[in-house]
Design a protein around this nucleic acid. Structure first.
Length: 422
DNA sequence: TCTGGGGTCCTAGGACCC
DNA sequence: TCTGGGGTCCTAGGACCC
């Protein structure tokens, strides 16, 4: 195997949500801390101390409650506003150290080093210490000639944090072979549980086996994605690196309710809220949508079965006007709500998304659009906070609001929550 | 009793067209 | 009785990611 240039890096924040909470609460270092999902349902982030107690990722809160209480584990409801804000700052720092950054998720970003001839392992160490110094974020960095190999490298950097000092480079052939032999197929990026089962039936157990497999055969047996993964493991880049996030092709907003709901007015208020959020996202990316889906989740029956009614409404023309969608949603909801049924979750999805710039409306079908009104609405709400001005149908009862019993202050986005030093 | 939310891409199959 | 071949578009569903 030849030595390849480590063009890509994956930088991932350890226990991101917990690290964000600790940033403003240094007293939490060394203590077990967890962060819960929306509605305080599942555990979605754990500090090392919490992991050491045997608590596992994605466990429902109630299942871990006794161990949490026994060991005085500190719990937070999720504060996505805060995490999103820290995520931006994280990317700003990365941008200072490479030629391109592509944010992959809130807590991890790919970097590209085109034409960097210096020792990238050393550079990665500089990035780590700077993130710690400026944002007190602990990170691990994986380097490799492809994104998939950078992902594998990151996995090792995290697993052997102390011996690797949080940085692993898989462009070195011997290290690559050693690492790929230890990675079981389900751990490879893009290979989940279902595909793993089938690969194992083919006698492919490790990333090294997959690396050596015949990619044409596996392309036929699986899909082009499998072929790409194999080539990426061999050091041949097949995945795009894009700095600018592409506009979304579908926009979704949904929430479980804090308690089951059965009245039409409560459900209407909830879906109106989701509609409003979806339309904001739509206008934010300068798009129009031509169809909207309303869906509900009923109560679970007979352990597994969910009643999941939904309805999709086509508009005569794409729009980004919240009021047009609100009217459609109200019509649609009437068709799917059954009297006497109770529901635990509702959501809205927008589809048929097109770019609003350069869109030619149909002069015969024209839907009345009010771009100035929408622009003013967004401007006011961006400046003074979400829903400062809103449509009446969003209501005020908020019976659908989710549980969030232990949310931390909005340190970075609300004046009254700014940290005070006394 | 209590189990999140928001996306992407790919494929298969049906409808339809010439 | 005999019944082509190729293409496009749309949708549903599956698998994956964090």
């Amino acid at each position: 195997m030849e030595k390849l240039h480590p063009t890509y890096a994956l930088c991932d924040v350890n226990s991101f949500y917990v690290s964000c909470e600790r940033m403003f609460r240094p007293d939490l270092y060394g203590k077990p801390v967890i962060v819960l999902s929306n509605n305080d349902g599942c555990i979605i982030a754990l500090s090392d101390e919490a992991k050491a107690l045997g608590i596992q990722m994605a466990t429902p809160y109630f299942e871990a409650r006794s161990i949490i209480q026994k060991h005085k584990v500190i719990c937070f409801s999720s504060n996505y506003g805060l995490y999103g804000d820290i995520s931006k700052r994280f990317n700003w720092i990365l941008e200072q150290h490479c030629d391109q950054v592509a944010s992959y998720s809130v807590d991890e970003s790919f970097m590209r080093f085109e034409g960097f001839d210096d020792d990238l392992t050393q550079r990665a160490q500089v990035i780590r210490s700077e993130l710690w110094r400026c944002l007190s974020l602990p990170v691990c960095i994986g380097l490799g000639p492809t994104k998939t190999l950078a992902k594998v490298a990151n996995h090792f950097a995290k697993k052997h944090k102390t011996t690797t000092h949080g940085v692993v480079d898989l462009s070195i052939p011997k290290v690559r072979e050693w690492a790929l032999k230890q990675i079981a197929v389900p751990k490879i990026w893009g290979i989940g549980r279902q595909l793993s089962k089938k690969l194992i039936m083919q006698g492919i157990h490790t990333a090294w086996d997959l690396h050596n497999a015949d990619y044409k055969t596996l392309q036929r047996l699986f899909s082009v994605n499998m072929e790409r993964t194999i080539l990426e493991l061999r050091g041949q880049p097949c995945l795009k690196f894009s700095e600018l996030p592409a506009p979304k092709k579908s926009i979704l907003n949904s929430r479980s309710f804090g308690k089951p709901l059965s009245t039409y007015s409560d459900l209407k208020e909830a879906v109106a809220h989701h509609t409003s959020r979806c339309c904001e996202k739509l206008r934010n990316q300068s798009s129009l949508a031509s169809s909207i889906t309303v869906f509900l989740y009923g109560q679970r029956k007979e352990l597994v079965y969910y009643n999941r009614p939904s309805v999709t409404l086509q508009l005569p023309e794409p729009t980004d006007d919240t009021s047009i969608f609100l009217q459609a949603v109200e019509q649609g909801l009437k068709h799917i709500v059954k009297p006497g049924e109770s529901y635990k979750k509702a959501g809205i999805m927008l589809n048929g998304i097109v770019d609003s710039r350069g869109y030619q409306p149909d002069i015969f079908q024209a839907v009345p659009q009010r771009p100035e009104l929408m622009q003013s609405l967004d401007k006011i709400n961006r400046r003074y906070g979400q829903d400062t001005v809103k449509f009446g149908s969003l209501g005020f009862a908020k019976n659908w609001a989710m549980r969030a019993n232990s949310c931390s202050p909005h340190y970075t986005s609300r004046w009254q929550d700014i940290l005070k030093v006394s």
